[in-house]
Computed example of a mutant assay.
Amino acid sequence: MALPTVDAGWRRGADFLVRSIGGLSTLCGWIAASMILASVFITCQMIFVRFVLRQSTIWQTETVIYLMIAATMLGLPYVQKLRGHVNVDLLPLWLSPLPRKLLAIVVLLSGIVVLGIMGFYAFEHWHTAFQRGWRSSSVWGPPLWIPYLAMPLGFALFILQLLADLLALLTGRDTAFGLEAD
């Protein structure tokens, strides 16, 4: 009976991590879709209240805006998991497998750095709103830290999915840019 090697254990752990992050990204996709659906229902309710009942609306417009922003931010990791972001793959198609893999690593690391910077400033903005008790200037006036939380959370989850993609690429679980080796 062959004993499992350290490399096999590490690969199993990496595979479990990639699958777990993928599951979290899928959950985020479901949450984002639910937020969009809720926005549609709230918009329909708002139209009914305004034009049928001839009453004013207080919270609906702002809620729909916040839900759509949160859906966009929380949907980022799911779209990344599906490779649904805009992609120009002309250069990867021209490259042989090794340079293609190196380019994919550079692209993933660059994305992580840029999103890390954006996430840092989004967190700083959220923290300021939370700490200072900022509220919306509307009649409804919800605390702004609640909708602002979607930004650092969305960026953090997107970075997590990019790290999972990088790990999958480095362990051979995935190919560079989803292209097969020549």
Rank of each mutant, 00 (worst) to 15 (best):
G84V: 09
P77S: 09
D89M: 08
Q55F: 03
L24H: 09
L37T: 13
P92E: 02
M118V: 11
K81M: 10
T171H: 10
I65R: 11
L166E: 00
A8L: 07
D89Q: 12
W59F: 11
Q161H: 10
W134F: 13
W59T: 05
V18I: 14
L163E: 04
R173G: 04
G172H: 14
L102M: 14
C28H: 05
M35F: 15
D89R: 09
I47T: 12
L82M: 15
G23I: 02
R50G: 06
W94G: 14
T5H: 10
L17Q: 02
M151C: 10
P92D: 03
L3Y: 15
T61Y: 13
S138Q: 12
F48E: 08
F158C: 03
L149T: 11
D182Q: 12
S34Q: 12
A33N: 03
G29K: 00
P152L: 02
P147C: 05
W126N: 06
D165M: 06
I112S: 08
M68R: 05
I117N: 06
A2S: 15
G111A: 08
A70E: 01
V114Y: 10
M35I: 04
R100Y: 05
E62Q: 13
W145H: 07
L90D: 09
L167A: 10
L169C: 10
A32N: 08
Y66D: 01
I65H: 09
G13T: 00
M151S: 04
V64S: 01
A164E: 01
G141K: 09
M151G: 00
T5N: 10
Q55A: 14
I58H: 03
Q80D: 08
T128K: 15
P92R: 04
V107A: 05
A14V: 04
V107S: 05
L95S: 02
A156D: 05
P99I: 15
I58R: 05
P77D: 08
K81C: 07
P97V: 07
F120M: 11
V86H: 07
M1H: 11
L167K: 01
L76Q: 00
I36T: 07
P97G: 08
S136C: 13
S96Y: 04
S138K: 13
L157N: 02
D15N: 00
L167H: 00
L67A: 09
P152C: 05
I36R: 00
Q55C: 10
L162H: 00
S138M: 10
I65K: 09
A181I: 12
N87K: 14
A32S: 15
I36M: 13
L170M: 11
L93M: 14
L153K: 02
W59R: 05
P142K: 07
A168L: 04
I31N: 11
F123V: 07
A129D: 05
V139D: 03
K81F: 06
L103D: 01
I42G: 00
R11I: 06
V107H: 01
I65N: 06
R19E: 07
S39A: 15
V88F: 11
F130L: 14
V18H: 00
G116T: 07
A176H: 03
T175H: 09
H85G: 03
L102A: 12
L115P: 00
L24N: 03
I42D: 01
R54N: 14
W134T: 11
V79E: 04
S138F: 09
R135G: 01
P97A: 08
